[in-house]
Design a protein around this nucleic acid. Structure first.
Lengths: 225, 225, 225, 225
DNA sequence: AATGAATGAGGGTTCATTCAT
DNA sequence: AATGAATGAACCCTCATTCAT
C-alpha cells in the first residue's frame, strides 16, 4: 500500500531532521568548530546515522547551504514574478537579496563561506555537482533578467549581461559580508553606516545601468549622498 | 651603545626571518594547514622562539598579511603620486590593485581571508589594533582621493566618498576573489572570462562616478560590451 | 516435497554465493580490511542476510578458508591415490602442496593466517568445531601416510609419525609463508631464491626420513647445494 | 658539563620507559587491541609524547619487537661463544632459541607476528630499515655458523648454508608458533605433546645435516621415537 | 527469509601552546 | 633570548552487528 511511500517519507524526514540539527550547529559554530557529535546529538540520532545520509561534515555543510540557495532562489522567483519590467524585477531582486541577508544572516554567511577554498577537501562529487547546478540556476536567473532589461530598452545596450550580473552580485555580497563581519567596527571607527552604504551602492549601480530613457521614466534621482 | 642597537637590529632581523618563513608556509598551505612546526623549521628557529615574537599562529598570519597591506599601500602611494588629477589617480589605483592581485596572488588571498569570521580566535589586541590602523590608512587613502575628485569637479557631488570607496573596493575585491577561486570554472561552465569582467566592471564604475564634464574631458567611452 | 528440496537447494546456493563474494573480498583485502558491506554488495544480498547464514565476519572468513582446506584435502587424496608406496605418495603430497601454494596463493594465505592468535574473538563454536574436524582430517591423512611408510619399511622406524607430520608440514608451510610475504626481499637483499630453498628443503627432509634401503631404491641423490 | 649528557640520558630513558609500557600492553593485548591511550597511561606520559618518540603504533610495536630480536641475538652470541665446534654451537643455538621461546613467549609471538602482512601500513622507512638490518644480523649469524660447520667437515658439503638456515629457522619457529597457539588443543585432541615434537624435530634436523663422520664422533643417536 | 536502517563504541593522530632550563 | 620536550584536548569516520518490519 502506502508502505513504500511511508518509508520514503520517513527517509526524507530524517534527512531533514539532520539538516535542521546541522544548521543550528553550523550557525552557532561555523564549519570548523562544529562537531559531528553535536549535530548527531541535536538530531537525536547516532553519529553513524548521520554518515548514512551525508558522506562527510563538509557535504552536510553544503547540504545546509544548498537549502539556503534554494530559499533564496524561491524568494527571487516570487519577488520578480509580480514585476512588469525587467528593471523593476531587478530592483525587487536587490530588495529581496537584502531581505534575505537580514533575515537569514547565518545562511548568507554559509553561502559566502562556501565560495572559499578552505572548504572542498572532502566534498563528494555528487554534492559538488548539486551545488554547481543550484549555483548556475541563480546566475542564469540574474543574467536573463538583465538581458531582458536590455531588450526592453531599459538597460544600456553596451553592457554585457553576465558581466553586469557578476558586478552586481559581487559588489552586493561583498558589502553585505563586510556588514556581517564588522558593521559595528565601521560605525565606531569610521562613523560609517554600512547598511546605508549598501542601499546607496545598489541604487547607484542600478541607476548607472539604465538608459537615459529609463531613468527619466522612473523619475527617480538615485544618489549616494 | 652599539650593543643596544645591534640587539635591536638582530631582533628585527629575527622577526623578519620568521615572517619570511611563515609567508612561505602560509602561501603554500593556507592558515589552517600550515603548522608552527613547519614554520619554525623553515625559519631555522625553535618553535618556542616563534612564540617569543608572535603570540599565536593567527597573529603570525596577520603579521604576514600586514606586510602585504603595507606593500599594497606603498604601491598605491607610488602610483597615485605621479598623477595630476584625483580621477587619474583613482584609475591608477585600480590598475595597481589589479597588478597587486596578479603579482601577489597569495598575499591577496591572505588579505581577503583575513576579512573573514573563520579567523580571530587567538588574535592579540595589539595585532588587531595594528591591522585596524593599517586598514584605516588604506581606506582613508582611497576615501580622500575620491573626496579630492569631488572637489576637483570630476566626481559627482551627490556621492558620498566613503560609500564610493566601499563600493569600489568591495566590488573589485570580490570579483578578484572569484577569479582566484574559480576562474577556470567560470570559463568552462559559463564561458565567462572573469578577468575581462573585472576590467569592464572597473571601467563601468569609474565612468559612472564621474561628472558629465569630466567624462567629456577624458573623451573616452568606457563600456562593458 | 519438491518444495522442501528446492528451498534446501536455494539455501545451499545462497551460502555459496556468499562464500564466493566473501572469498573475492577476503582475497583482495584480507580479513581486517574486508567489510561486510562490500561482501554483501558483491553477493547482491543485504548485509542482514549475510548474518542469517554466517554468525560473524570471522566465521565467514573461516568458512571460506574451510573450502580451501577441503580443496587441499581433495587434491591430496587425488594425488596420493595413484601412488603405489607411501613414500611415493608422500612425495606427491609435497608436490601437491607446493602446487596448491602457487595456484591458490590467497587460500594458502588464509589457511596460514587462520592459525594465528589475531583471529578468534567472534568465532562460533560450530565453526571452531568444523575447522577442527577438517584440520584433523588432513593431519590424520598425513600421519597415516607416514605410518604406512614406516610399515612398508621405507621410513625410519625410529621416527614418530605425528612428529614427522608436524615437522614436514610446519617447515613447508613456514617457508611458503616466507615466500609469500617476502620473496623479493630475500632475493634482493640476500640473493636467495626461496622457491629453490623450498624445493631443496622438501627433498632434504624426505630423504632424511627414509631408511637406507628405501634411499637406495630411489637411486636419487637429494641435495641442498 | 654533563648537561648534554644528562639530557641524552633522559631521552634514552624516556624511550625506554615508553618501550616498557608498550611491551606490557602489546603482550597483553596484541597489536590490534592495544591502544595508545593505555600505553601512554602506563608510561605515565601523555599520548602526544609517545608520538614524539615513535611515529606510529606500528613503529612502536616494531621497536618493542626489535628489543626482542636484540635480546635473542645476544643470547645467541653468548651461547655460541663458548662452543668449540660450529655444530656444537648450532646445537646450543637450538637450545637457546627454545629457551627464548619459553622464557619470552610474548616476545616470540611479536617476532613471529611481525613476519606477517597484517602489519606494515604505517611503518616508517627508518623502522623498516632498522628491522631489516637486525633481521639480517641474525640470519647471517646462523648462516655463517652453518658455513663454518661445513668447513669443519661436520655438516654435509652438499648443503647450502642459507637454505639450511631457512629450513632450520622456519621449521623451529613454525612448530613453536603451533605450541604457542594451541599446545593444549594438540594434547587433548591428538594426544601429541608438541614440546616433545619440537625437541625431536630439532634433533632430527641437526642429525640429518651432519656428515657421517661427525655423527660418529658425537656418539649420539638422535631419534624421534 | 530478507531487508536495510540504525547503532555507538572505538582510537590513532595532530598541533598550538607552554614552561623548565 | 632561545630551546625543545611535553602536553592533552579535540575529532572524524568506520563498521560489525542488531532488529523491527
Amino acid at each position: 500500500m502506502g508502505i513504500q511511500e511511508r518509508k520514503e517519507r520517513e527517509k526524507t524526514q530524517r534527512r531533514d531532521d539532520i539538516l535542521n540539527a546541522a544548521q543550528e550547529v553550523f550557525f552557532e559554530k561555523g564549519l570548523q568548530n562544529a562537531t559531528m557529535d553535536e549535530i548527531a546529538e541535536k538530531a537525536e540520532l547516532s553519529k553513524g546515522t548521520i554518515y548514512l545520509y551525508y558522506r562527510s561534515k563538509e557535504d552536510l555543510y553544503l547540504a545546509v547551504m544548498m537549502r539556503g540557495m534554494e530559499l533564496l532562489y524561491t524568494m527571487f522567483a516570487q519577488a520578480t514574478g509580480k514585476q512588469r519590467s525587467a528593471v523593476e524585477a531587478l530592483r525587487a531582486l536587490a530588495d529581496v537579496y537584502t531581505q534575505f541577508f537580514h533575515e537569514h544572516r547565518s545562511l548568507f554567511r554559509m553561502l559566502h563561506f562556501s565560495q572559499t577554498p578552505q572548504l572542498h577537501k572532502q566534498v563528494s562529487e555528487e554534492m559538488r555537482t548539486a551545488c554547481s547546478i543550484q549555483n548556475m540556476k541563480i546566475w542564469n536567473f540574474v543574467q536573463e533578467l538583465i538581458a531582458r532589461g536590455i531588450e526592453e530598452g531599459d538597460i544600456r545596450r553596451d553592457l554585457n549581461p553576465i558581466a553586469v550580473a557578476v558586478l552586481l552580485w559581487s559588489a552586493t555580497t561583498s558589502i553585505m559580508s563586510r556588514i556581517d563581519y564588522g558593521a559595528e567596527y565601521w560605525k565606531s571607527t569610521m562613523n560609517v553606516d554600512l547598511d546605508t552604504v549598501l542601499r546607496q551602492s545598489l541604487e547607484f549601480l542600478l541607476d548607472a545601468l539604465m538608459t537615459p530613457h529609463a531613468r527619466e521614466q522612473l523619475r527617480q534621482q538615485p544618489s549616494i549622498s
